[in-house]
């Protein structure tokens, strides 16, 4: 049995069916890439996986247990990176990350997380001075600062340059090597070794090896 999986998920947005009968499963160490054109429901699926949205039918389970039975427990397993970076303009980069790390039981070293994305030199800079790409790196460093098994990344490469993308690829590989799981939606090619692909295009829900 897969650690994290969804069965026959049905989701409406307003009067529109975003997807019906969608299933997915992911094991420790695996990566799943969501593909599809705009409006095909990639973000919606990630929000369903995070528990921000509830499916109208079907179940999403973690280790055999429905995630809506214990939402806080599920939250502890995951990190979510959405469209907005949640960087407060008046807090320094360090303060921004420390705040989020302290909400978790297992806060790790902040400096290592910052260095992983090459923003160690920005530690004391207030958020309002950061560029879009730097904010995105802060947001990504946040998920390194307190380890969690499952990463849900919604278009994580937005605003990132080539160097930062390769940093991200390396961190994802490290995360998977230590047994972590990654589910990411992306337009651009992102080099993930043996990632499985879930096509949300045209409701052809094929799951195949890349």
């Amino acid at each position: 049995m897969a650690l994290f999986s969804g069965e026959n998920i049905l989701c409406f947005r307003g009067e529109r069916t975003v997807f019906a009968d969608l299933s997915f499963r992911i094991q420790l160490g695996e990566a799943l890439v969501l593909r599809g054109p705009n409006g095909s429901g990639k973000s919606t699926l990630l929000r369903l996986m995070a528990g921000l949205l509830k499916p109208h039918d079907g179940t999403i389970t973690w280790d055999g247990e429905n995630i809506s039975d214990d939402p806080e427990g599920h939250n502890a397993h995951l990190h979510y990176v959405g469209h907005a970076d949640a960087v407060k303009p008046v807090l320094s980069v360090h303060e921004n990350i420390v705040f989020w790390a302290n909400l978790r039981a297992n806060a790790g070293p902040i400096e290592a997380a910052l260095d992983a994305f090459g923003i160690g030199y920005l530690t004391d800079v207030p958020g309002r001075f950061l560029s879009a790409g730097q904010k995105r790196r802060v947001n990504l460093a946040r998920i390194l600062a307190s380890p969690a098994e499952l990463w849900l990344l919604d278009e994580p490469t937005t605003a990132l340059d080539a160097e930062a993308i390769s940093d991200l690829e390396r961190e994802i590989a490290t995360h998977r090597a230590s047994g972590g799981m990654v589910i990411a939606s992306t337009h651009t090619e992102i080099g993930l070794k043996d990632a499985r692909i879930l096509n949300l295009d045209d409701f052809r829900l094929t799951e195949d090896a890349a």
């Binding site: 049905l10 529109r16 069916t17 019906a20 009968d21 109208h56 045209d202 409701f203």
Partner: peptide, 10 residues
């Protein structure tokens, strides 16, 4: 049409 069918089926 696909959408119609999925909605009905759902």
């Amino acid at each position: 049409t696909i959408l119609e069918k999925t909605t009905e089926g759902a």
